[in-house]
Design a protein around this nucleic acid. Structure first.
Lengths: 258, 258
DNA sequence: TTCAGGTGTTCGTATATACGTACAGAGGTC
DNA sequence: GACCTCTGTACGTATATACGAACACCTGAA
């Protein structure tokens, strides 16, 4: 392998600056950005000036640097290009990091009223919940399935409830159509679905809807783990999950066909 | 002004590459990207290699370069940071393209019960409606104003209707408080407001609410044009406007404080 | 008011990087 | 199979850029 020169260090510096400014609400000073980029101030000032001149950053009246209109436009066009799975991956990763539990995306299978798991980031915990991707499961006994039922057309949901045989997987599986209907209605109001030991004993799952174009629910994002561990952190998990679902819904709203 | 050196040319080259890849569905070759960036291939290959190493680009099995996971994650976090006007711009552009009419965003002025137009994309038609940005107009005679009245606190709306002198701008301006109250109630139900020749003879406007955090209406998105042209395409315009308002509402829902 | 610490700016010099050139290889055409 | 065109790669050299050092200025604390 011939010896080739290293890539220019401005690449990592530029992205370090952009990433930092994307995470901060307020602008940042030259000195702070130089510290974050681990680079001399006189080197960083050249990069900042160049990005300001090109409209990717702006410098406010306090001398703080912020993301500029061209960066926002570029970001919008990048996000608009992605499909759900591309957009979901970093969100799933962050959610798994925040909660310590496995995070997944599930959608309605195209040919049957079943949930299909299309992406996941497994928990770092040695004791973790997991499910094979591509797996198809019943709607009525999973948090994802209940979210999808809550947001599908009312007549399609009614047809499903009339026709589906609610077999028990565990002693906690809901097998009463009346009880399930009531719970689906509550999920529609609350936005989140929680299952405890319904599909697998000892496993809880918490799911939220992901909205696509026109507000339709196209998928659900879910975290799942051992019921006792999920129980102790449920409140924080709900907050993290709502935020993750919202950022994905935002991202999906931007990806309309042109 | 002391003579300082120019910013490094890699800045413009990096953003040129990213912008181009964001617009293309397929990947692009090294030679094509070098042409687009107007730079020697041997210079561009160093930038590409650096961005691939850092995960901002990937190189597929055909040797084509594409946006990588770190660029997608950066873009998502940039978009999640924006305010209404930044997010609105591409939506207004698309709406103006789809409908052929001028599209605008209006909000409630902070110091008076007036509409203020804060952003617009003018129609490409030589015959077009336009209004200067920053312009402040009465609520009762504009589609935006009626949307905002329909979604504000009921007592604030009542106070406005009691105190505002409903002067006529045209023979079609609604000057009866009773009629206006009824119409506001209908707008609250229907979601859309339509004005025909009320503020300016020969001009119609169609407005929909934009919801922010917690479902509050923070602005309205509107298309406006000559009444006859608006009339002939009203149904399609309603569909396009609803979709635009929803995508903005979802985008605004995503920009929550973490 | 003084002082210390941190800021942003400037510039000459060191050096990292850009690039021109050559070339091997691939693909398409005849 | 030969030939042409374009690709991506390699590398030595030219040069654009990084950066260390110095300094004026600002802010906050004593």
């Amino acid at each position: 392998m011939p010896l080739t020169q290293a890539a220019p260090q401005s690449i990592d510096r530029i992205f370090s600056i952009l990433g930092h400014l994307a995470r901060e609400r307020d602008g940042e000073s030259l000195s702070e950005l130089a510290r974050r980029a681990d680079a001399p101030k006189s080197s960083v000032v050249g990069l900042l000036t160049g990005m300001v001149d090109s409209g990717y950053l702006i410098r406010d009246v306090q001398g703080k640097y912020r993301l500029g209109p061209n960066m926002v436009a570029l970001a919008i066009s990048v996000v608009a290009r992605q499909g759900l799975q591309d957009l979901a991956r970093p969100v799933l990763q962050r959610l798994a990091d925040q909660t310590g539990e496995t995070s997944l995306i599930g959608t309605l299978a195209s040919d049957a009223d079943l949930v299909m798991y299309v992406d996941k980031v497994e928990s770092a915990n040695p004791v973790r919940y997991t499910v094979p991707l591509g797996e198809r499961r019943e709607l009525y006994a999973s948090a994802v399935g209940k979210v999808l039922l809550a947001h599908m057309a009312a007549d399609r949901c009614d047809t499903y409830l009339r026709n589906e045989k609610l077999r028990a997987f565990t002693p906690k599986t809901i097998t009463s159509v009346r009880t399930l209907r009531q719970e689906i209605s509550e999920i529609r109001e609350a936005g989140l679905a929680l299952t405890v030991d319904e599909r697998v004993v000892g496993v809880s799952a918490l799911a939220a809807p992901i909205h696509g174009e026109g507000g339709r629910v196209i998928a659900a994002i879910v975290i799942a783990g051992p019921s006792e561990r999920m129980r102790t952190a449920l409140k924080q998990h709900k907050a993290s999950l709502r935020a993750a679902a919202k950022s994905l819904s935002l991202a999906m709203a931007g990806t309309t066909t042109h």
